[in-house]
């Protein structure tokens, strides 16, 4: 059976995030991020907050790659990333732990 990867990440939004998204972030977004190990490209990341995310405070979220086939390359513990809402770096994050899940969980969790 095919499995999917997602991760728990620490997310830290910058005050500038308020210029691009309605805060607190208590809804699912799919937004470009840049990973520390792949700084030349943007990748769309689902961010599903476990609790409402507010600027200048650490919060946790479930994250997954929109193109899930790239997940094994990009999601691993301690990998850091910057979050871009449009043209501005609006926060950063770090992968804490990576999990495997089935399609049912993946589709139920990462969607608008």
């Amino acid at each position: 059976m095919k499995t999917y990867l997602y991760a728990i990440a620490e997310i830290h939004l910058f005050p500038e995030a308020a210029l691009r998204a309605r805060l607190p972030l208590d809804y699912t977004v799919c937004t470009p991020v840049k990973f520390q190990t792949h700084p030349d490209d943007f990748y769309s990341l689902w961010i599903v907050p476990d609790q409402p995310l507010v600027p200048c405070r650490q919060g946790r979220a479930k994250v997954a790659l929109l193109f899930e086939e790239l997940a094994s390359r990009l999601l691993f513990p301690k990998e850091r990333f910057t979050i871009w809402f449009g043209d501005k770096i609006s926060g950063d994050g770090e992968i804490i732990r990576v999990y495997q899940c089935d399609l049912q969980f993946y589709e139920a969790t990462f969607h608008f």
């Binding site: 691009r20 998204a21 309605r22 809804y27 977004v29 799919c30 937004t31 769309s44 929109l66 193109f67 809402f85 449009g86 589709e107 969607h111 608008f112």
Partner: peptide, 28 residues
């Protein structure tokens, strides 16, 4: 839309839009 990002993404060809659409909406 309320409760979403305050902007929208676009791409340059229908094929690319379909690639993102397929991922974003899956079977919907």
């Amino acid at each position: 839309k309320l409760g979403h990002m305050e902007g929208k993404w676009f791409t340059t060809t229908p094929e690319l839009a379909a690639r993102w659409g397929k991922k974003l909406y899956r079977r919907n």
